[in-house]
Simulated assay, not measured.
Amino acid sequence: MADTPDIAPKILVIDDAVTVRRYLRDIAEKAGFAVAEAANGMEGLERALSDRFALFLVDVNMRKMDGYRFLAEVRQRPEIADIPAVMISTEARPEDRQKAFEAGANFYQVKPVEPEWLTRFLTLLVGDARDA
């Protein structure tokens, strides 16, 4: 059973709020995942292209590049197009959810995210990090 960040599946958290990134990082790391962060979609895309991730957790509203555009860009790039993405946002209207799926999200979750839910969902999409 490996629990080192070099072996654990790596998740990229993309959100402009430092507190949200830290919150999601804490949950994912407690579940055994390695975590990298980006403050906006542009930074997220650069990180996604320079490293291999098992999953993206993406906010909607960010400067420079929002989450919808980030996902659309990811889905156009064969080297990263297959990585699952969960959009996590305060936007709760059905049209926001639909727009996320059209951009390439695999799932849409309205904030706040419960730690137990996120842990179960990460394990479902990526596998149990503690077995990596």
Results as ranks from 00 to 15, higher is better:
G67H: 06
I27V: 15
N61L: 12
G44Q: 10
M1I: 15
R93M: 10
A105G: 13
V58D: 09
S89Q: 02
R97Y: 07
A28D: 05
K64R: 11
D6K: 03
A34F: 08
Q98P: 01
T4S: 13
Y108K: 01
F70G: 09
L122K: 06
L55T: 06
N40H: 13
T119L: 04
Q98K: 13
K99I: 01
R97K: 15
N106P: 03
A81L: 03
V113S: 06
A39H: 06
Y108C: 00
E102M: 15
E91A: 12
I14Q: 03
I80Q: 07
A36P: 02
D131R: 15
L122D: 13
V74H: 02
R97W: 13
K10A: 13
P9S: 11
D59A: 08
L122S: 09
A132Q: 05
F101D: 00
A36C: 07
R97M: 15
R130E: 11
T90F: 10
A54P: 07
L125H: 05
M1C: 06
V110N: 15
E43I: 10
M42G: 11
M65H: 14
Q98W: 05
A105V: 09
R63T: 14
A39S: 14
N40P: 10
F56P: 03
A31E: 04
L12V: 01
N61K: 08
A81E: 11
R77N: 06
D66V: 05
A8M: 03
D16R: 04
F70T: 10
R93W: 00
G41Q: 09
R97G: 08
A92E: 11
A48I: 09
L55H: 00
K10V: 10
F33I: 10
D96Y: 09
R21L: 12
R52I: 12
A48Q: 05
E37L: 13
E46G: 07
V13E: 01
L124E: 13
R93K: 09
E79Q: 14
P115G: 07
E46W: 02
F107M: 09
V58F: 01
I83H: 03
A105Y: 02
D96S: 15
F56C: 07
F101C: 04
E102P: 01
R130C: 01
I14Y: 04
L12W: 00
A105F: 15
Q76F: 00
T19N: 10
F33S: 13
L71S: 04
D128W: 05
L12Q: 04
D59F: 12
N61H: 07
Q98V: 07
R77W: 00
D26C: 08
T19G: 02
G41P: 04
R69H: 13
D96E: 05
K99E: 11
V13Y: 08
R77V: 02
Y23E: 15
A31H: 02
K30R: 14
K10F: 01
K30Y: 01
M87Q: 02
